[in-house]
Design a binder for these strands. Structure first.
Lengths: 331, 331
DNA sequence: TTGAAAGCGGTACCAC
DNA sequence: GTGGTACCGCTTTCAA
């Protein structure tokens, strides 16, 4: 592999000049530039990115931490990030945090040791304080989580609005008794979605009813259990709004096991619009979570603030939207 | 950030010695080692991985190319790779090839420019010759594709067996007329799966019937179209074996649109066991593709051959297995 | 066992 | 505009 030194020799110029034409950093005479370019061609020269990183103190890499590398949700996000970043020659190093404090910190530590220029994080275990502290040490952008004090670094979804839209859709369809299967309430976005649900209810002049509320776990089994519980209560309802698609699937399966027809007997709504929602039967109505777009935006944040792509605009808040499919019907 | 130089100064030893204790490379006196370790502690020293890479000519990174970063299948694979590699301090750089020749070559070029120590590839557009040539230049391990001439570098699934198991299961359930919806025949694994299907038929003394065969595209819409075609032909069948889960979903949806009950009227089998197969209704029977395990094994190959983890064993061929769920029934 | 020093392949500042 | 050169932080002979 040819080095910059051999190129300079062949072109009959200095190292510095070769470096200049590579980076287009300073003015180089037309003739000189061409000599260098040609020498590069002839030697099939490829810059050594490691050496560049060491000398420039910039690794051209950004670390991305997700809860799980598999999982449709994160796939979309990573895909958005990869796309945006590779188009400008940066690379993304992935790591999984598994929603566990130690594991998340470990992964972040790892990414830092790799000298990432910035970190894109989707974390739910570490504390806000930790993130605030981390952000002093290395640039961080946080996905789907608002951390007070680093607002500019957060790319969020308006979860409250999502919760609102979901329930509002049911109300608009004429449903009066709407059950709600929530996610784990220690998560902020879960509480926001719930708040949206309550706002829709209130706007319609209906009271929030504890008897129609269950806290789930975001997994399918949790959806089954929650539905089971709702059914056992014998408090009537014609619609169920779930805080994510997995639980909605569980709820549908459970309802079916109880000989209930969907959507004739009960309408079901999910949240996230992950790929599986298009494959359920009946196809699940849900709230679209633009994970890919948000990932892309996180990458854009990095481009703008770390790689000085100043003209770029970043959007910190995204809006969810309603996706109506077959799991809901008019009451 | 402290450097090795400051550590050496503080410990009152030379640079070289510090380096030695970091790498455990050569014998270092107990006392000296402790002095160094302590100095590191006190300075909160973290080695600069970029500098290490430059000096050692080893980037400790491996590139992973998948068709799409999203998509459950690749998620599992990447997850396996990430897990295995991070546990030994290596990092994985991801890129997407989008099943397009130029795009795949681009991504590989990109990964090489990042000085990856090895490449783990899931590609379907580039040719065998290209891969062979590439492998001379940089270590490559190929996932789910057998390239003659670099057998040791391929981690494959016994697709033929998978195809066999799928059809065999239908035969065992008493089905006589079994339709087959294939993937794009230009892909090797597709032809292998088909070969397995034929073998099962033959063993049962049944002839392969062109009228019950359709070439699909691996997507849901293709599954719908294929099923539509089968139904139009009016040639009777009681079971459909599909070359992947997406098409199986399409086939199920289409059948349902034609008022056919699954599995009472027609049994359906998929292939891959991606996450969606657990969410369809009825739950899809399928052939398990251990994508995560295979990704992990690819990573192990790299550990063994590139990072000299000699005792590791690598398994080049994986066996698929039958997963029976609700979409099939006895005839 | 330990130290000195020559790289690894670039970047960037300072002269000219 | 171009060249000289001191780093960037670590690895790895080669001697001692």
């Amino acid at each position: 592999m040819a080095t910059i030194y051999q190129v300079s020799e062949r072109a009959g110029v200095s190292l510095a000049t070769v470096s200049r034409v590579m980076n287009g950093s300073a003015k180089v005479g037309e003739a000189t530039r061409n000599k260098v370019l040609q020498a590069m061609q002839e030697l099939n020269y490829r810059p050594n990115s490691i050496a560049q990183s060491l000398a420039s103190n910039c690794s051209n890499s950004v670390g991305m931490l997700v809860s799980e590398v598999h999982g449709p949700f994160f796939g979309e996000m990573m895909s958005g990030v990869e796309n945006e970043l590779r188009s400008v020659g940066k690379h993304v190093i992935i790591a999984a945090g598994h929603s566990d404090v130690e594991s998340e910190k470990d992964a972040i530590e790892f990414l830092i040791s790799r000298k990432c220029d910035a970190l894109i994080l989707h974390v739910d275990a570490v504390s806000d304080e930790y993130l605030l502290e981390l952000n002093k040490q290395t640039p961080v952008v946080v996905l789907n989580r608002h951390v007070a004090g680093m607002d500019e670094n957060c790319i969020c979804l308006n979860n409250e609005l999502g919760g609102y839209l979901a329930t509002k859709a049911m109300l608009d369809l004429g449903h009066q008794q709407i059950a709600y299967i929530s996610g784990p309430l220690f998560k902020l976005d879960v509480r926001e979605r719930l708040a949206g649900h309550k706002r829709a209810l209130q706007e319609a002049g209906r009271a929030f009813d504890e008897g129609l509320f269950v806290e789930g776990d975001f997994h399918e089994a949790g959806g089954v259990a929650a539905m089971e519980q709702l059914l056992k209560h014998k408090q009537p309802f014609s619609a169920v709004v779930c805080a994510n698609d997995e639980m909605a699937c569980g709820a549908m399966n459970c309802a079916r096991d109880h000989q209930l027809d969907i959507p004739a007997d009960v309408s079901i709504m999910g949240f996230d619009n992950v790929i599986i929602s298009r494959y359920t039967f009946p196809h699940l109505s849900t709230i679209d979570f633009p994970a890919g777009e948000m990932g892309r935006m996180a990458a854009r944040w990095v481009r703008k603030h770390i790689y000085q792509d100043d003209k770029l605009k970043v959007q910190n808040l995204f809006e969810p939207s309603l996706v109506l499919r077959d799991s809901v019907s008019r009451r």
